[in-house]
Design a protein around this nucleic acid. Structure first.
Lengths: 228, 228
DNA sequence: CCTACCGATCGGTAGG
DNA sequence: CCTACCGATCGGTAGG
């Protein structure tokens, strides 16, 4: 959102009042928001590749084209940068999840039917893979594997977002369990399902054969019983 | 093995054979091998709790009751200690897996029948949970979540052990796939299965209600179709 | 955002 | 295994 506000401020009226309205350093100002975003992006990538503790703030600064002290102009400390990466990732995941569900609901409505639990499940799984393995997919793996480096308070905030994310799944899984399509104790089944999905961040190679649709199909086949 | 060699070499002929059958400082010498084991144990625990990079060799030394330089008497460097933790964990896992399978085969033979693929699967899953969540269960999670901190050569060695471990599963999963009890592309199904199992190291709380048998039962219900 | 810098910590070693 | 130590690196800051 900060991108939008910043972009809506032109910064290029300048050939207009060349004499009067000096450059105003518009380029530099637009960068202000972008630099923070850039820091988040490279931090996510490095935290994922090397881990939080093994990544120095100097590594991050250098990858963002800054000097060693500059990240601290944007973030209070290294931990706050990590927390920001995770929150950014979770917020994006929540938005994508909601958008995917809304799109599926609309499509079904246009076709005059409602979504089955199985169809909801498919949409959620597919969206999850997108978030985990698609473009800009470093943020969520960092959250999954580096949360122990957060302070207790930061952990609480991130956990709240994660609960929101999981809450969308609960009624779907409950319905699948009620129909017998998903078996095993529901709580345990949910944990194992997320384990199966999240683990893909460790082994999935986009250059390889399987597409996200392949993965999604396999998950449905593997976890769901047929209703008959 | 070094334990054996060390125990066979006395080193205390000096008050000569005063009484002839003295304690021989056996306790101290036995400690020599124990110190290395103790280092592995505390290192596994700390690496798991804090991560490899966030754990200093001083932390480890202090937790083992040594001074800061002493771990380097037992291990060439910090990386070698990490590799030893992983190798120790995988060797133990391989032994436990083989023992569990052997015991199950023997029991079935004594009862005059052979193991079904489903029964093999149950034994492997149960043994996996034991290794992952039972006593001394820090080693394998360290391997699962810290392997990127290894050098390429060390990674190769650990990977060989991991391949041996997975190789035992392959024919079992193949049989389950052939019978229709396990569905989805076999390669993907295997990765997702391990994901579901391994993720339990992140959330399982032994103080909580579910036992390892509960988990095993849920896995079978969740992943296997009924043959009818 | 950069320059210049600081105190703390870290992996590792020599020599016993 | 301990003592004593070293060079390197790290997170972070003051002051512009």
């Amino acid at each position: 959102m900060s991108i939008v506000t910043e972009l809506s401020e032109p910064s290029l009226h300048e050939p207009v009042r060349r004499a009067r309205g000096r450059p105003r350093k518009a380029v530099h100002e637009r960068d202000d928001g972008n630099r923070r975003q850039e820091l988040l992006r490279v931090a996510a990538r490095l935290f994922r590749q090397q881990g939080f503790a093994a990544t120095s703030t100097r590594d991050i600064a250098s990858a963002a084209g800054m000097r060693s002290g500059s990240p601290f102009y944007h973030f209070e400390n290294k931990e706050a940068l990590l927390a920001a990466v995770m929150q950014e990732g979770m917020q994006s995941a929540l938005q994508r999840q909601a958008a995917a569900m809304a799109a599926a609901v609309d499509l079904a409505a246009a076709q005059g039917h409602t979504l089955s639990a199985r169809e909801c499940f498919r949409v959620l799984v597919r969206s999850h893979f997108e978030v985990l393995l698609g473009p800009d997919s470093d943020f969520i793996p960092v959250m999954l594997y580096e949360w122990r480096s957060l302070s207790p308070e930061q952990r609480g905030e991130v956990n709240r977002l994660k609960d929101d994310y999981e809450a969308v799944w609960v009624p779907v899984l409950k319905a699948l369990h009620a129909s017998g399509e998903l078996q095993g104790e529901p709580g345990l089944a949910r944990m194992m399902l997320f384990g199966a999905l999240n683990w893909s961040a460790q082994w999935y190679d986009p250059a390889r054969e399987a597409t996200l649709d392949d993965l999604t199909r396999s998950v449905l086949q593997l976890f769901l019983k047929t209703t008959t």
